[in-house]
Design a protein around this nucleic acid. Sequence first.
DNA 1: ACCAAATGTTGAAACGTTTCAGAATTGGGC
DNA 2: GCCCAATTCTGAAACGTTTCAACATTTGGT
Lengths: 333, 333
Amino acid sequence: MPASIRDVAAEAGVSVGTVSNALNDPSRVAPRTLERVTAAIDKLGFVRNDAARQLRAGKSRAVGLIVLDATNPFFGELAKGVEATAGQHGLSVLIANSDERPERERELLNLFEEQRVLGVLISPLVVDPEPLRKLRDRGTPVVLVDMTSEDKSFSSVSVDDVAGGDLVVQHLVEGGAKRIAFVGGPLIREQVADRLSGARNAVEAGQATLEVIETPAMTVAAGRAVGEALLERATEAMPDALFAANDLVALGLMQAIIVDGRFAIPEDVAIVGYDDIAYSATSIVPLTSVRQSPELIGSTALGLLHAEANNGSEAVKQIVIQPELVIRASSKR
Amino acid sequence: MPASIRDVAAEAGVSVGTVSNALNDPSRVAPRTLERVTAAIDKLGFVRNDAARQLRAGKSRAVGLIVLDATNPFFGELAKGVEATAGQHGLSVLIANSDERPERERELLNLFEEQRVLGVLISPLVVDPEPLRKLRDRGTPVVLVDMTSEDKSFSSVSVDDVAGGDLVVQHLVEGGAKRIAFVGGPLIREQVADRLSGARNAVEAGQATLEVIETPAMTVAAGRAVGEALLERATEAMPDALFAANDLVALGLMQAIIVDGRFAIPEDVAIVGYDDIAYSATSIVPLTSVRQSPELIGSTALGLLHAEANNGSEAVKQIVIQPELVIRASSKR
DNA sequence: ACCAAATGTTGAAACGTTTCAGAATTGGGC
DNA sequence: GCCCAATTCTGAAACGTTTCAACATTTGGT
C-alpha cells in the first residue's frame, strides 16, 4: 500500500487538489506551500500512480513499438532512434518483440490497445492489415516501419531500395567494373527485387553487364556456396564485381574467394554488400555496404506518429528514406 | 471515446458486474448470457481499459526490463528468454534501454515505479545501488541480471566466468596444447579477470604453460594487432593455442593468422573465443566459444522475480549459471 | 410439490488521480 | 478602512474497472 496523493495532502496539511497542482504545475502553488508538499512527498516516499492518472486522462504518454526480432541489431538501432525522438516529446516507449509469430503480434497489439497507448509503431509481419486497420479505426494511430503500405491509409517509413541498388552499381561501374554479378534472393522478396531493379537501371546507364545469381536465402552459407561455384569457372568468366543483396551474403562470398586465394579483393573482384551491419566494418577486407540508418527510420516514424496523434488522419503520409553508400576497402580501386 | 464496460452492459441488457465476470471468468456466467455479452463486445469493438483494471487491482501484470544496450544481440536474446517465461506466468514485459546513461536509468526506474510494475529486471549500470534499494524497499522486487550483487539483499543471475575459463583451457590441453596464450583485457574488468583465473586453475592441473597478453579493449582490431605481433616471433615461440577473452578478439586473431598464411587453424594454432555470438559460427574457420546462454539468464531472472513477487524477500537468492563450451573447427584436433 | 443447495445476476463501493467551479485569502490603490 | 482584482486553495465529481454481499433463479432429491 504505497502512499497516495491523499496521504501527502494530509501530511502537508493541504487539499488533494493542491498536491496535484504542485505535481503538475508548481507555478500555480505558493512557494511556502510547495515546500511543505515536497517535504511530505519525500517523507512518505510518494510515487504517482500512473494508472489513475491515465484513467482520468483517457490516454497514456506511451507509444508501443513492435519489432520482428529483438536479436537483430538493426531493430536495436531503430529502437534507439524512436526513444530519442520520443524523449523530446515527453513520451516513453514500450518495446516488444513479435518474434515473427503472427499470434504474438496480435497479442501485443491487443496489449497495447488495452494500455491505451498514444500510438503503435510496427514492423509488420504479414500482409494481413486487418487487425492494424481495426486498431487504427478505433482511434489508435499506427505507423508502419521499414515497409511500404500497399494502400495509402497508413503512415509509413521505408527505405528506397531501388535507389540503393542504383548507388551500388554506379559506384562499381565508376571503379571500372565490366562484368557485375548480383547475388541474392529469393527474388520475390520485395526488398531484394527492388535492389536488383535499381542495379539494372544503373547498368543500362553504364557500359557493364549484369548477371543475376539467385540464392534461396540471404545467409553467410548461401554466399559462400555461390562463391565456390563462381571459382570453378574459367578465369575469364569470373565477374569482376559482386553486388550481394545483403552483408551476410557478401561476407560468405568474401570468405570463399579469400580461402581460394587466386583473386585479390578489390583488385580482381570488388564486393559490395547491403545493410551495413556492424560486422561489415570488421571483416577481413572491410566491406563496402549500403547504410539504411535505422536510427533515422525510427525517429522519423515517431515523428509521423506524433503528428497523426495530434492532427488526425490528415497527417498520414508515406516517407521514403534515401540510403547511403559507405565505401570501404572491398571496392576501392 | 471508446466503448466502456457500461456500454457493453447496456447493449447486452445485463449489469456491468456480469460483463466483468464474462471477461474474467466466463465459466461463472450462463452460456446464453455469455453469448449476448460477446456479441455486444464485438458489435461495439470494446477493448478493456487496462488503466482502470490496474487501478482497481493495485498492481499490474507487467514487469520492466532495463538493458544497457538494445543494439547488442546479447540483450536481445536475454529479452527473448524473459518474454518466454513471462508469457508462461501470464505476464507481459516492457523493455527499455538505459543506453548506458545513469540519468536515463533513473528515469526508467521512476517510470516503471509509476506504472506499478510487478517487478524490475535490470542489468545495472553503475555500482550505485541506492535508487534500486529504495525501489525495492517501497515494495517493487528487483532482480540484477548478468551481474553479481555485492550485498546479498538483491536477487541476481550471473554467469560463472571462472568455470568458463577453466573449461576452455581444459579443452585446449586435452587437444594437446603445450603453450597457451590468454588474450584480452583490461584485466580490471571482473569478467576478464575471472576468465583468466579459471584458465590458470586448469593450466596448473595440466602440463601446459600460460602466457597472458593484455589488450586495452576487446575488439576485432585489438585481436588483430596481437595476432600480428605474435606472427613476428620465431616460429618456435608461437603459442600453439590462443584463448581470447571474447569472440571479437578471437576473430581478430584469426584474421591475422589466416592473412599471414604460415600457420593452419587448428592444426598449428587452436583458437577459442568467449560469448558465442552469432557471427562466431560463420567465421572463415568456425570458432569454438563459450556460450553464456542469455536466454537462460533471462528466463531464470524472471523466475526469481516471480518468486520474490509472490513470496517476498525470503525468495531472494543469487543464481550462478554454468557456461557451456561449444566446440567448432577452430580447436578440433 | 416442496425445500435446500447450487447457480446466476445485480448494483454500489472503491481504487488514485485530475479537473474545475467556486471559496478564501492577499495586496494595492484610494 | 474599503473595494476590486489577482492569487491561492478547496472539495467533489469523474474516469472504467473489479469485487462482493445480497438477491434471484434454477436444479435435484424426496
